[in-house]
């Protein structure tokens, strides 16, 4: 599959990334190499094979609707990139 620089631009928008103009050609080449790996799978004949949505033969894994204590907020917020005493803080993002 051919990856063009336009496709790199489009994927950049979706991923909120801003590659430098001079990086785009290299990214296109690398992405193309990665995607071409999938061609290995395409060589297999999958006619008549049921599509699989999960790799393990398990189903209906559920839990009862019983509340457990949540994580104390102080501990939770230790994982935040930035925080105040009550909340995670992120750069302003208005849709």
């Amino acid at each position: 599959m051919k990856i063009t620089e336009e496709m790199v631009d489009y994927i950049s928008v979706l991923s909120r990334l801003k590659p430098e103009p001079e990086e785009k050609a290299q990214l296109a080449t690398e992405l193309e190499r990665i995607v071409s790996y999938m061609d290995v799978l395409n060589r297999l004949d999958t006619a008549g094979v049921e599509p699989l949505s999960h790799v393990f033969p398990i189903k209906n894994v559920m839990r009862p609707d019983l509340p457990c204590p949540s994580l104390p907020r102080e501990g939770l917020l230790k994982n935040a990139p930035s925080e105040d005493p009550e909340a995670f803080l992120v750069p302003k993002a208005v849709e």
């Binding site: 909340a87 995670f88 803080l89 750069p91 302003k92």
Partner: peptide, 8 residues
């Protein structure tokens, strides 16, 4: 501020 507070 240039900031958004997140409550999950």
């Amino acid at each position: 501020l240039d900031q958004t507070r997140c409550d999950y």
